[in-house]
Amino acid sequence: SYYEILDVPRSASADDIKKAYRRKALQWHPDKNPDNKEFAEKKFKEVAEAYEVLSDKHKREIYDR
């Protein structure tokens, strides 16, 4: 789930989600993982997609249904 990707509970606040996104984006940024760039790019995209949905109140409500 998007919550698992960002490592936050379903009850996470918008601020918690933003902090988790920043932490995970740094962790999986391809430039930070030169030895495993392809895998890092995949993870980085997953993190971005999760944040896009969970950071938008309307999209998150739909996702949580």
Rank of each mutant, 00 (worst) to 15 (best):
L54C: 00
D56L: 03
A40E: 03
Y51E: 01
I5G: 00
N33T: 05
E49R: 09
D56R: 03
Y3H: 01
V47R: 01
E41G: 08
D35H: 14
Y2V: 03
S13V: 05
R10Y: 09
N33F: 15
Q27I: 13
I62F: 07
A14G: 12
E52V: 05
P34H: 13
K43D: 02
P9H: 09
P34L: 13
D64P: 01
K18M: 15
Y21G: 03
K18H: 15
H58K: 12
K43H: 07
R23E: 14
A50K: 00
L54W: 01
E49H: 09
K43S: 06
E61C: 11
K43I: 11
I62A: 15
L26D: 15
A20P: 00
W28C: 04
E4K: 11
Y21F: 14
P34I: 10
R65P: 04
F44L: 14
L54V: 02
L54R: 00
L26W: 12
D31R: 08
Q27T: 07
D16C: 10
R65F: 09
S11C: 15
K42R: 15
D31C: 10
K43P: 02
F44P: 00
E46F: 05
E4D: 14
E61G: 06
A12N: 01
K24R: 07
E46V: 04
K19L: 14
K24V: 06
D64T: 02
N33Y: 14
F44I: 08
E4T: 11
F44K: 04
A20N: 04
S13Q: 06
A20C: 04
E52H: 10
K59C: 08
E38Y: 08
Y21D: 00
A25G: 06
E38M: 10
R23I: 14
S55E: 06
V53M: 05
D31H: 07
H29C: 09
S11I: 08
I5N: 03
K18P: 01
K59F: 06
S55P: 00
K57N: 12
N36R: 12
R22N: 15
I17M: 04
F44D: 03
E41P: 02
K59G: 04
A48S: 14
K59M: 08
A40M: 06
L54P: 00
K24L: 13
A14R: 06
A48G: 09
K37N: 06
Y63A: 02
D15N: 13
A50I: 03
Q27Y: 11
A14L: 13
E49L: 09
N33K: 05
D64Y: 02
W28N: 03
W28S: 02
L6R: 00
R22S: 12
A40P: 01
Y21C: 05
Y21A: 11
E49M: 14
D64G: 01
L26C: 11
I62C: 12
E46S: 06
V47K: 00
R22A: 15
K43N: 06
K42I: 14
K43E: 03
K42W: 12
K32L: 15
L54N: 00
E52G: 12
P9L: 08
D35A: 12
S11G: 10
E61F: 07
E4N: 09
S11N: 14
K32H: 14
D35G: 13
R22T: 14
Y51A: 04
E46Y: 05
D31N: 09
A48I: 15
R23N: 13
D35L: 10
R65K: 15
N33A: 05
V47N: 02
I17Q: 01
A50T: 01
V8N: 00
I5V: 14
K59P: 01
N36C: 14
Y3V: 00
S1Q: 10
V47W: 03
L6A: 00
Y3Q: 00
A50E: 00
P34N: 09
H58T: 15
A50C: 01
I5C: 08
E52A: 15
E61V: 06
P9E: 08
S1D: 15
K37T: 10
D56Q: 04
P9F: 06
A12G: 05
E41H: 10
I62P: 03
N36F: 08
S55H: 08
A40G: 04
K45Y: 07
K43Q: 09
P34V: 10
D56M: 03
P30G: 05
H58G: 13
R65H: 08
L54S: 00
A20I: 01
A12D: 01
Q27E: 11
R10H: 11
S13D: 08
H29W: 07
Y63L: 04
S1H: 07
V8L: 11
R23H: 10
H29L: 11
N33M: 07
L6M: 07
W28R: 01
L26F: 09
R23L: 15
E38I: 10
P34Y: 08
P30R: 04
Y2N: 03
P9G: 10
E38K: 13
Y2Q: 01
F44W: 13
L54Q: 01
I62G: 05
D7N: 09
K24A: 08
R10D: 05
Q27R: 13
W28L: 06
V47L: 13
D56K: 04
I17D: 00
R65L: 14
V8Y: 00
R65S: 15
E49A: 12
D64N: 04
D64F: 02
V53A: 04
A25E: 11
H58V: 15
E41C: 11
S11R: 10
D35R: 05
N33L: 05
R65W: 10
D16Y: 06
V53C: 10
A14Y: 14
Y3C: 02
S13C: 06
Y3E: 01
K18I: 15
R22Q: 14
H58Y: 13
A40D: 04
W28F: 08
Y51D: 01
D56T: 04
K18G: 09
E38R: 08
R22F: 11
E61R: 05
D7T: 03
Y51K: 01
V53G: 03
K18F: 13
I5F: 04
K37R: 15
K45Q: 12
W28P: 01
A14V: 15
S55Y: 06
S11P: 03
Q27G: 03
Y3W: 03
S13G: 08
I5E: 04
A48W: 15
S13P: 04
N36S: 09
N36K: 08
D64H: 03
K37E: 07
N36G: 07
P9C: 12
D35K: 07
A14I: 13
Y3R: 00
V47A: 08
W28H: 08
P9N: 07
H29T: 10
K42F: 14
D31G: 08
K57Q: 14
E49K: 13
I5H: 04
E49W: 06
E41F: 10
Y63F: 04
R60I: 02
I17P: 02
L54H: 00
K32S: 14
P9D: 09
Y21H: 05
N33D: 05
L6K: 01
D15V: 09
E41W: 11
D15I: 07
L26E: 15
R10E: 06
R22C: 14
D16I: 08
D15H: 11
I62E: 15
D7K: 04
N33I: 04
F44T: 07
K45R: 13
D7L: 03
K45G: 07
K19P: 01
I5K: 04
A50M: 01
E49Q: 09
E49Y: 07
K19A: 14
K32M: 13
F44R: 08
A14F: 13
V8S: 02
K24W: 07
A12I: 01
I62T: 07
Y51C: 04
I62H: 11
A12E: 01
Y2A: 03
K24Y: 05
W28V: 03
R23P: 03
L6P: 00
S1M: 08
A14N: 11
F39N: 08
L6V: 01
A14Q: 12
Y21Q: 03
A14H: 12
E38L: 12
R10K: 14
I17N: 01
E38A: 14
A12K: 02
N33W: 15
E4Y: 09
A20S: 05
E46T: 05
R10S: 10
A48Y: 10
Y3F: 03
E61A: 11
E46L: 11
A20L: 01
E38F: 07
P30L: 05
K42T: 10
H58Q: 14
R60Q: 04
D64I: 02
Y21M: 05
A12Q: 00
A48K: 13
K19V: 13
K24D: 01
Q27S: 06
E61Q: 08
Y21W: 10
N33H: 15
R60D: 03
N33P: 03
Y51L: 03
A25R: 15
R23G: 07
Q27L: 13
Y3G: 00
F44N: 04
S1V: 06
D7M: 06
D7H: 07
Y51G: 03
V47S: 04
S1Y: 08
Y51F: 13
D31T: 11
A50F: 00
Y2C: 04
R65Y: 13
P30S: 06
N36W: 09
P9A: 11
K24N: 05
V47T: 04
P9Y: 06
I17V: 07
H58I: 15
L54G: 00
H58P: 04
R22G: 12
A50Q: 00
Y51N: 03
P30W: 04
A12Y: 02
H58L: 11
E41L: 15
K57P: 15
Q27P: 02
